[in-house]
Each structure stands twice: as C-alpha cells, then as structure tokens.
Design a protein around this nucleic acid. Sequence first.
DNA 1: GATGAATGAGGTTTCATTCAT
DNA 2: TATGAATGAAACCTCATTCAT
Lengths: 239, 239, 239, 239
Amino acid sequence: MSTVTKKQREIIDRPRQILRVSRDIFRKRGYLGLNMDRIAEQMGIAKGTIYQHFKNKEEVILAMAVETLEKRIAMFERAVLFQGCARSRMAAMGCAAELFVINFPDHFELEKVLSCSSIIEKTSEKLQTAKTVAEMRCISLVAGLVRDGIASGGLSLPNDFKPDQVVFGLWSISYGGYSIMESQETLKQMGIENGFRLVRDMNNKLLDGFGWKPLSSELDYNAIFDEVRTLIFSDFPKP
Amino acid sequence: MSTVTKKQREIIDRPRQILRVSRDIFRKRGYLGLNMDRIAEQMGIAKGTIYQHFKNKEEVILAMAVETLEKRIAMFERAVLFQGCARSRMAAMGCAAELFVINFPDHFELEKVLSCSSIIEKTSEKLQTAKTVAEMRCISLVAGLVRDGIASGGLSLPNDFKPDQVVFGLWSISYGGYSIMESQETLKQMGIENGFRLVRDMNNKLLDGFGWKPLSSELDYNAIFDEVRTLIFSDFPKP
Amino acid sequence: MSTVTKKQREIIDRPRQILRVSRDIFRKRGYLGLNMDRIAEQMGIAKGTIYQHFKNKEEVILAMAVETLEKRIAMFERAVLFQGCARSRMAAMGCAAELFVINFPDHFELEKVLSCSSIIEKTSEKLQTAKTVAEMRCISLVAGLVRDGIASGGLSLPNDFKPDQVVFGLWSISYGGYSIMESQETLKQMGIENGFRLVRDMNNKLLDGFGWKPLSSELDYNAIFDEVRTLIFSDFPKP
Amino acid sequence: MSTVTKKQREIIDRPRQILRVSRDIFRKRGYLGLNMDRIAEQMGIAKGTIYQHFKNKEEVILAMAVETLEKRIAMFERAVLFQGCARSRMAAMGCAAELFVINFPDHFELEKVLSCSSIIEKTSEKLQTAKTVAEMRCISLVAGLVRDGIASGGLSLPNDFKPDQVVFGLWSISYGGYSIMESQETLKQMGIENGFRLVRDMNNKLLDGFGWKPLSSELDYNAIFDEVRTLIFSDFPKP
DNA sequence: GATGAATGAGGTTTCATTCAT
DNA sequence: TATGAATGAAACCTCATTCAT
C-alpha cells in the first residue's frame, strides 16, 4: 500500500526532518534560541525521539554543518566542470561559493558556533571526521584548479608559495568577507553596498597579485560569473 | 591615609577589574564558561556588585570588546606614524594588526559571540555606539593610508574602486585568515605552518594585485615588519 | 529585633532543614523517591536554593549519613562513660548501637545506597572524609573498650587476634543482624520475634567465645542494657 | 537440521541469556548502569523482546537474585554431605558460603537493591515466593546442622535459644562481614587484611561461645576449610 | 554601595514501556 | 514472536537576576 510506503519514508527521513526544522529555528533565533524543546514542539514529536537520532544537541548542530558542507561539495563539483581556462574555472568556483553563501546563509553561523571547543567536544568523533572530510574535499577541488593553472602555464607561483596557500588566501577573503558582511555594521555603513561583488573583486585582485593570466584587466570575470550562474546553476534562484 | 586611597582606587577601578577577570575566564573557558558566579568568585566580591557596574551579562561582553578595540586603535595610531612610503606604512599597519591578534586572542572570539543578535540586542545603545565608533576609527586609519597611497602616486585605483573597498579586502584576509587559523583544523593540516606569515603574504599579494608600488617583489615587506616591531612595538613580547 | 534574629536563624539552618526534609522523604519513599523537586516542594522553596547548599543530590544523601553518624558518635561517647567493668561498658555500647538503629532507622538504608560507587563518586572529597572520620571515631571508641578489657584482665586475646578484629566481629553481627531484620522476610518468619534482643545475645555469645570475663552466663548483660537505657539514655523513647 | 535446533535452543534459553547479560552489566556498572537498552544491545536483540520474557525491569533483577540463590542452594547441598562431626560440617557450610560470595559477588549488591521496597513491589508474587523458598531452603540446611549438633551431643543450647537463632547469628556475621568488606573503607583500613579469614574466625568464635564441641581451640577448622575446598569444591577456581 | 541567599524559568538528558508493523 | 521508533514523564542541573538586609 502507498500508505505504508509513505510512513516508512517518513521514518527513514526523521534525521533529515529534524535537521530541517533545526535549521529553520537556528536561522530565526540563533544558537541560543535552538533547543530540544523547540525542535520537538515544532515537529510535533516527543523530545525523546530526537535523542534516538542524535546523541545530543551538539550533534544536531554539527550534523547541520555537515549537511550544508555536502551541498557545497556538490556545488563545487558542478562548478569545476565549467568549460574554460583554469582561472575562469576558478571564477566559476567563486560563483559556486557565492551562491552557497546566499542559499545557505546559516552555514557561517554554524561554523562560528562550532569553533567553540566546548561544543565540538561533546560530539562523536565519527561526525567530526565527516566534517573534516567534507572540508578537505572542498579545499582539494579548489587546490586542483590552482594546480591546473600552473600546469596550463597561466600561473607561475614564486618558489616559496604552494597551491594550498593560494587556496588559503581565497578562502580567507571569502570567509572573512562574508563574515564581515553578516555581522559588522561598521563596514556595511562605509559605502559598501554589494558585498558579494566586492568579495569577487578581491579574489580577482589577489589572483592578479599572483600574476595569474588572464588578469582581471584582460578578461571580464564578472561576465563569467553570470555565465556560470546561467549555465550551471540555473536551478538556484536569482538574487 | 594611603590605605583609604588604595581602597578607593580599587572601587573606582571596579569596572575595569571586572573586565579583566571576565576576559581571563573567557579566554580559558569560552563564552559558555563565563558566568556571573565565576566572575564574582574570582574577584572576591558579591555577585550583586557586578550589577552595579554592568546592566547585564551581555554588557560585560560588549564592554570587553570595546576595551580591546581601544587597544587596537592605540596600536594602529602608533603604526601609522611609521616613517616610510604609504605602502610601507600599510605594512606597519599589518604588523600592528598581527600583534593585536597575538596579544588579544580573545577579541576574535568576542566578535563571534557578539555576532549573535540575541546577545547584542540586550545591550545599551550607548555601548553599541561606542563599539561602532571604535571600529570606524580603526577603519579610517587604514583607509587614510590607502588615500595616502593614491595621493603619493604609488597606487592608482580603477574607477569603480574606492579606498574603503581596499580596506574591506585587507580586513577580510586578516579576519578570515586569523579565524581559519584559530578554528579550522582542515586548512591547518594542509601544509600551512606559519599562518601569520601567510596572512601578511596574502595582504601583500592583494595590494600587488592593485598595482600598489613598490610591489612586494620590489621591496621586502617582511623586513619592514621586523623593523616596525623593533622600532614601534618593542614593548610587546616577541613571539 | 527578634524578627531579624528569627529570620537569620532560619537562613543559617537551611542546610539542616534540607536534610530534615530529605530524611523524611527518604524514610517514606526510599532512594528512588527522593528527588530535588520533592524536597523543594515539601520545603516550599525553589529547587535552585537547594543547589546553593548542596552541590548535587548525592551530597544530600552523604550529608544525611554524616549527620546521623554524628548522632551515633554522641551516643557512643555517652555509653562509654557507663560505670562498670570493661565488658559491661561494652554492653552499654551495644545498648547505644541498638538505640541508634531504633531511633535512626534510615541510616542503614543510607549506608546501603552509599555503597553504590556510582553515588559516592559524585560527592566532594571533603564530605567523604567527614564520613570516614566519623566512622573512625565510632570504631575507635569500641576498640578502646576491647583494649580496656585486655588491660583489666577480663579478656585475653589469642596471639593472632587484634582488638580491631573483635570490633569487626561485633560490627558484623550488628550490621548484618539489623540489615536482615529490616529486609529479609525469610528470617523474620522463622520464629524470630525480637531481633534486637537476638543481636545482643549474639554479640554476647561472640564475646563469650573469646572468653571475655565475666561471661554472659555469669552476669546478666540484658539487665545491664536496661540499666544503661535508664541511666544514660533516658531521653530516648522506650520501645 | 541442527541449525534449527540451535536457533530453537537459543530462543528457549532467552530468559537465561537475558539474566546472564544483565548480571554482567550489573557487575560492571551497578544498578543505575543496568537498563533495558544496554541489555538489548549487548544481546543483539530488540528491547521489546525482553518484555516477552520479563514483565518489567524489576523482575529481571529479582530473577537474577533467585538464580544465584539456586546456585547457593546447590553449593550448600554439596557442603552438607561433608563427612565429619556436625561442627565440621558447619565449617564446610561456611566454606560454601565463602566460595559463593567469591564467585557470585553481585549477589550481595542484588540483595541491597531488592531491599528497596519500591523495587520489590513491582514484581510478581510468584517470583517473590520463589526467592523466599530459595532462602528458606538455605536456612533450613544450616539449621539442620545445628540440630545435628544438638542430637550428636556436641552442642547444648540454653533453654531460651532455638537452632534458628544460631543460624541468625552465623548469617549476621557473614552478611554483615561481607557487606563491610565490600563497602566500608574505614574498617578495611584498620589492619584487616584477610576479611574472609576473619569472617570464618568470627563464626567459629560465636560457635565457641555456644560451647559447640569440638571448640576451635581443639580442632583446626581452617584446615577443614581447605579440605572441603579440595574434596568438594575443586571445580571452583582457587583464590 | 555591597551582599549573597533565593528565585524560577530554562535547559539537557534518561529510560521504562508501548505498539504498529 | 520480534522489532525498534516513539513516547513522555521524570529527573538533574544552571544561572542571570532580584531584593531584603
């Protein structure tokens, strides 16, 4: 019977349902506003049920982060397939990162919360590893493009620089930039209207600083952004 | 009697003492480990007394952040006096920023905590303004150097770029880079040993990307870092 | 004003009040029926208040045991003053032990509960020590009488026996006997009506076994029991 | 097929398996550490299945006690067959009791737990009776030996003593002594090294007090202990 | 101003038991 | 018979804040 199937599907999806509701609460009320009572109430289930799927509150938080990281991996994997020179593909990656932040804005908040050691300590090693692995996959995809840039002759790193360090730079700009946009009133007030555009520009200037050809003065990477969004990420809502 | 004076001084300094003790606890045990009981106990005063100096716990947190921001202003104001070309003075600023992070590592954590809206909401507007003002002063100091760069001919910004946006870029790299260093195991494992050095390099590459002369290939900004530390910040402990 | 004094006295007595109420609940509903909610409710105070005086539930339990142990010490100290030969004074001690069990029947239950390591583990070392010290004082008082018996010539221990071991024997009979009386239906059914009398007799037979003069066949120790109760423990209700 | 037989046997043995696993958990983690989840998990069956063999958790506890009591009966029945005078056979009984405690140390803990009325109340009358019957059989075996002692002339009880009361005395020493050994740090520290030996000695001294011939000064009952262990209980591991 | 006991809402976690499949 | 997800009552504990002294 289809009724049976439906119920079974519901049961199987419990963890995902819990995460969906938790994410909703987290987005609206922040870490301190997320608690087991509220999750249970909003789901219409018993509090104890949550504990059958998650060891504790902290695991719920971490699982939410892993879930979005997996979304990011999927997006990065799509972006990396963009047809073009290495630096254009890196721009596609930037587009993916930007769309990720726009569509999963709570991920940054999650990262902040998880950086409190007192929280991560309470989680299982298994889930911690899952998060690390997911992060590594993202970074590897980006680092791969840097290596492609070197291999294809567009980029020539100074002796004392390694591809991973370029990734660190891009990552810092994005992570820092988006964080500032979210939280720091001050910078927002300073005539900075389109933060996303600014993060793109800064990443481009950094790569220009490394002399990665074609430079942003030679090729319009913002046009490539639009192309990537149309060709690859058309399923994401336009801003 | 000097005894009376001492006691009076102690009482006058109460707010500052509370912040000092709070910072100590915050550094050791994080936000969740900081509570009024512990502050009172560690200060040897009654819990109620704290409420005569701070409206609530959130104000303590915010006041801590303002206090360190003022330290940062002081450091930036010293850095800006470094004798040299505009870009060298910007390097001096980077040195100040780095020393600030090293000496007040809790400030980043505080910023993270304060980005939870539920916390800042409970604070007085007065203190919120104090924080914004302090941040603005820091940013203005950096933006001033960008303008100096333009004025002195070393830097020529494209039409669509404003000095504040360059500040945003530098800020992002520093904020993002230091955040990643603190929390993200993943990147740390990827062959990145000296994160501070890397943040410097990335800032330099970004400025290179803007074509700010002399480029980092023409002038050894790391040497300038050392000079700044020796000449201007000799009172800070060496790493 | 006397009002002030009264209130202050109440405040000072809070811990003792908590223990009194806890003991009451423990007696009626056992360990599993004793919880912080019930204590608070029955006292008409907030649950949190209990935690200002006791770190956790286990400390309440342990404190109750220490409190009764102190009652026992007081009783033993009175018994030891009984005028008579060493063995008569030991009988007085037995009388004290019996009256203690009759008047503080929950102490045995407390001891049982505390023998669960999982409970004692959660208590502070300070209180644990207090309990050990109290027990030592009781044992020392009994052991002192054994030594008196030896010194006065009534008792001559075989080479391989030490006074403490005699104490262990008496303690075992009392502890075991009273425990059996409380809990084991079986033995109660077997024609044993007056368990207290029986414990006395067994202790006497054990001392007879050691040849402690005058033997129970030579002197009526039950008469001494009555005498002790009349002379020394007249403030305790008659059975 | 033998496979079917094996599975069937397993199903038939379910209750016993549940008790075995429960005992294991109880021994390692105590009463508070024993729960249905752990039993089910460790058995590799579903939690609900346990409820098809035991009405509730309390019945599991009680059934464990009955099971060990049956072991004790078996041991006592073997001991009573020892060839020798009545008092020597009583020594054999002591040996059995000692070996029982050594090999089933959890039984004392179980007795303690069961003495909480709130637990026994939830069990079926049937199982309660089973426990009482088992205890009675043990006591009867011991009481029988006392009567043998009287019948064979070695023991002459005073008018006001009955055989069951002697059993009560022995039982008290053993129950109390073993309990103290398990839990009371204090007495253990007082120069008492071999508690088992001490319990034996005290039992002997008690019987000496009753004048049961041959006295412990006339016959080496510790030697008889060793003999009993070798002849009758050679299947139990040596200490 | 200083105190600190009292508050009480708010949170997390556990676990015996049930019941639809 | 077996399952195991769901239940929900019951417990423990925390801590910012108040207020009578």
